[in-house]
């Protein structure tokens, strides 16, 4: 297991570097001009100066290596220094073209909103999905199963940008229960401000939780069904074990193996999918930062954010594979 993990970790490094190169080339080869949105009265010489000040005068490989140095070496060093409290030395950082501030600072600023809304919705989604999947599978073709399967099919067929808008129409415009715009400046200090926070998080969290629960409960159900028909379940019943023990100890533990990896694999997708939900409820998280950066042609921010999303995918793929090996002792990665 250890050598496998090490091998995978070593393999992840070139993969990530390659992905960062692909993203960089894609952004660079695109016919877009960061000065295109500036007023037309700016003379061409000044425009050229602006482009050079953004670092566009250098050849492409220099710019790529510079980005790599800034992102992979300078930024981690800054983090280390901040942790040790050793003051900050001057290093070149990845700067946003729009705000002229370090991209990593922008991301750190936006991360809490995304993590709270998206992370919470994923946790809630998983917590709803697993019991529904278990009951649906155990009582296959019962009315609970029929309704559960229908709701989960609807849940992942209806796009989040429609459920979100629909919720706003009903609960925000119609009933006025929840605010339709997420207020990031709100600080939780006491019970009443906590209630305000809970109310403004309710709808975005519900939208994402429904979507996630719909997908995971289907996996949970089919994984349970697969195990319920196995011989070892019949053996356990024949030995006279309590039904509850068979279900929750024997079947559940085996059914959770693929589901846990699915949950791990879904984490990065949640960040991607949150782009839309953040846009609907005007949460200024990472997704919104990306959209604004794309619209403004702010390539360093787009490059860094897209790369972080890719890094999340690679990391969680790795986590899923390792989890699979840990949870399922019949899988041996090390043997050839």
């Amino acid at each position: 297991m250890g050598t496998y993990t090490l091998r995978r970790l070593l393999f992840a490094v070139p993969t990530l570097l390659f992905i960062s190169l692909v993203i960089f080339l894609l952004l660079d080869l695109a016919p877009s001009d960061p000065t295109a949105n500036l007023p037309l009265t700016i003379p061409p010489e000044v425009r050229q100066k602006i482009r050079e000040s953004l670092g566009l005068g250098e050849p492409i490989h220099i710019r790529y290596l510079l980005w790599c140095k800034q992102f992979f070496i300078n930024e981690p060093l800054n983090v280390v220094e901040a942790l040790l409290g050793a003051g900050d030395s001057e290093r070149l950082r990845v700067l946003s073209w729009q705000t002229r501030s370090p991209v990593v600072d922008l991301i750190v600023e936006r991360l809490p909103q995304t993590l709270w809304v998206v992370g919470l919705s994923y946790v809630i989604g998983v917590l709803i999905a697993i019991p529904i999947g278990i009951i649906s599978a155990y009582r296959q073709y019962s009315w609970f199963d029929q309704i559960g399967t229908f709701v989960s099919t609807v849940g992942f067929s209806v796009p989040t940008f429609f459920t979100g808008v629909l919720l706003i129409v009903v609960f925000s415009v119609g009933l006025g229960w929840f605010p339709s715009i997420y207020d990031t400046t709100h600080r939780v200090t006491d019970w009443s401000s906590f209630l305000v926070q809970a109310r403004q998080m309710a709808m975005p969290v519900f939208v994402l939780a429904l979507y996630n629960a719909a997908q995971i409960s289907r996996f949970m159900r089919s994984s349970m069904l697969e195990n319920l028909n196995q011989d070892y379940v019949r053996t356990a019943r024949g030995k006279g074990f309590h039904e509850r023990r068979i279900l929750f100890v024997h079947v559940l533990r085996n059914s959770m193996i693929p589901v846990v990896t699915i949950i791990a694999l879904g984490v990065p997708q949640v960040f991607g999918g949150a782009i839309i939900t953040e846009q609907i409820f005007k949460v200024n998280g990472l997704g919104q930062l990306l959209i604004v950066a794309i619209q403004g042609g702010d390539l360093p921010t787009v490059q860094t954010l897209t790369f972080i999303f890719a890094g999340l995918i690679v990391t969680f793929n790795l986590v899923a594979d390792i989890l699979y090996g840990v949870l399922d002792p019949t899988i041996r990665y090390d043997q050839r």
């Binding site: 990065p268 959209i291 794309i294 897209t306 690679v314």
Partner: peptide, 9 residues
């Protein structure tokens, strides 16, 4: 491994 929605955008 590519983040598809951001890349599409």
């Amino acid at each position: 491994a590519l983040p598809l929605l951001p890349l599409l955008l």
